[in-house]
Design a protein around this nucleic acid. Structure first.
Lengths: 153, 153
DNA sequence: ATACGTGCAAAGTATTTGCAAACGG
DNA sequence: CCGTTTGCAAATACTTTGCACGTAT
């Protein structure tokens, strides 16, 4: 909002997130930064476990509890979206204030998760959201089925 | 399909379910019947815990394990739909082969869950489903927000 | 009579919480 | 230095599994 008039480069989310955290009065923290950086690089939702593992692999291990605490905080601040894809595991991904919004396809056989997007669907959701008595501020669509590999025909 | 030309009465699901179970070679079972009957009476999704409690209240208690086993079986046969609404609890409701399909509104403050339906949304989902490489056979839309009680203004 | 269905209790996972040590401001 | 952030370990919550008994066929 304050930098310039042209659209910011790719890592806006990371910056926005760190700025929001600072604005909310949180101190900087190594574990938190590591989680934010990792989420910033993802293209789809990760489970807490996967985040923990990912950080460990890159030599920046953090306590599992911290991962959960950080994800909760980020979810609270609407910086990440928590998604329940129906396998008893919560997944998390960057929450885009606008644009680049996608939903999830779940293969119930092998557990694969794939993102997809569709403007028409998005519109339909916005339309119905406005008609409801709830104040809707997030939505999530999950399509269950079988992926190509699991159902060749 | 075989009874008559006019729309069947309310408890089609119960009948369809029992018939399907029988056709699949399952024996009759008290616990299973109790769960089916209870689900048949619901208007929205219940958690395993709630089902267990409900049955206990009406004096027809069953083992918790049985509840889970039965729900798994029914889900497998596509007789119930499992829904993850994002609170670490799975919820289950009748799966309507057609018609009467609804989705869920979740109040993230008080945890209330309310159903809603919207034909346009339904259409948008069907349309996008056909365009994907997955064979989609179920879908679920969850809208998160605050209910009237939690956000008066 | 035989095998499936059920209930209990124990085991497993995912997630949360309590507390002391580490660290940023 | 002070209070937040972090990590560990224990606790909790939900769901699954093992096994013996009940029940439908």
């Amino acid at each position: 909002m304050s930098t310039s008039a042209r659209p910011a480069p790719a890592s806006t989310w990371r910056d926005h997130t760190l700025a929001t955290l600072a604005a909310a009065g949180y101190r900087k923290g190594g574990a938190r930064n590591a989680v934010v950086e990792l989420l910033d690089r993802q293209t789809c939702a990760l489970s807490a476990q996967e985040i923990d593992d990912g950080l460990r692999e890159e030599g920046r291990a953090v306590g599992r509890a911290s991962v959960y605490r950080i994800l909760e905080m980020l979810t609270e601040l609407k910086l990440v979206q928590r998604i329940d894809v129906g396998q008893g595991v919560a997944r998390y991904e960057r929450h885009q204030p606008d644009g680049d919004h996608h939903h999830h396809l779940v293969c119930d056989e092998c557990g694969t998760i794939a993102p997809f997007e569709d403007p028409t669907l998005e519109q339909a959701i916005e339309r119905v959201s406005r008609k409801l008595s709830f104040a809707v501020d997030e939505h999530d669509v999950v399509l269950h089925g079988s992926c190509k590999d699991c159902r060749p025909r």
